[in-house]
Amino acid sequence: MTSELLENSTDEAQEFLSFTLGDEHYAVDIMKVQEIRGWEKTTKIANAPDFIKGVINLRGDIVPIVDLRMKFNVGEPTYNEFTIVIVLQIHARIVGIVVDSVSDVVRLTADQIRPAPEFGVAFDSRYLDGLASVDDQMIILVDIAELITSEELALFDGDTTKDLNTNEH
């Protein structure tokens, strides 16, 4: 569990946006969600992994689009008017993630969040903040900042001081 979650008192709730990938339910910190939008055609990036679908221009920002369904080999990816993209702001950078569906906003206290196991979910537990049971469903809390800045995805270098739209390298 991240120290951010541990710092919350038992009375203080944190909000998460829940979504599905295949049969599993996930959630990300709602404060990182910029918007939820439908699929639009992307511009491909040469030599990018298959799960990086390309980039879109979102009101002047160039936004990489990652299909989490492909990244974690969960379900069959389709791209149509029902495809959901969650646009996130991570360390002053913007990225879109493709998911099967968006479920709900859930409020969780630190007492409701359990440590993540080392197995049994679609991806590496180092990208998880923990697990929570809501309405008899297990929700996997994703440390989306850790995932997006990871070497595995290599979307951003993890340097939080640079802005997405600068030409710094």
Rank of each mutant, 00 (worst) to 15 (best):
V142N: 06
E15W: 07
G22R: 04
K41Y: 14
D100I: 03
R126Y: 04
D129C: 02
L141I: 06
D135I: 08
R114H: 12
G120P: 06
I30Q: 05
E35P: 04
I45L: 09
I97R: 06
E151I: 12
S133V: 11
K71E: 10
L6K: 11
K162E: 11
L164V: 09
F16W: 02
T161H: 13
G120H: 10
P49K: 08
S125R: 11
I30F: 07
S101R: 13
L21P: 09
D157T: 10
I36Y: 10
Y127N: 08
E24C: 03
N47L: 08
L58I: 06
A48S: 08
A27M: 09
G75H: 07
R126N: 10
T78I: 08
W39E: 02
D23M: 01
T160M: 11
K41A: 10
D136Y: 09
P77C: 06
I52F: 03
D124E: 14
F72I: 00
L68F: 05
L155D: 09
I90C: 07
E81P: 12
E40A: 14
A13C: 07
A116P: 01
K71G: 03
I144L: 11
P117A: 13
Q112K: 03
L141K: 05
L17W: 02
V134Y: 07
F123Q: 00
L164G: 13
G120T: 00
M31H: 11
S3D: 04
V106I: 15
D67A: 06
G130M: 00
I84V: 15
V87P: 01
D129K: 02
D67L: 02
T161V: 13
F51V: 01
V142K: 03
E146A: 15
K41S: 04
H25I: 07
I97K: 02
Q112W: 03
M70V: 06
V106D: 05
P64V: 05
F82R: 14
D67H: 05
P117Y: 10
Y127D: 01
D111G: 15
V33Y: 12
T42C: 12
E151N: 13
Q34K: 13
A122N: 02
A145W: 00
I62K: 04
M31G: 15
D135P: 04
V74R: 13
T160G: 09
V99P: 04
P115T: 11
I139D: 04
M31D: 12
Y79I: 05
D61A: 14
R107G: 13
F123E: 02
I148K: 00
I140V: 12
V106A: 04
M138Q: 10
S3R: 14
I97C: 07
K41P: 15
D100G: 10
G22M: 03
N73T: 15
K41G: 07
F16C: 02
I45W: 05
K32L: 15
V106R: 03
T109W: 11
E118W: 08
N47M: 09
F82S: 13
G130Y: 00
A13S: 12
K44I: 08
S9G: 14
L68K: 02
A122I: 05
D143M: 11
G38D: 09
D124W: 06
I86L: 05
I62M: 15
I65C: 09
D143P: 01
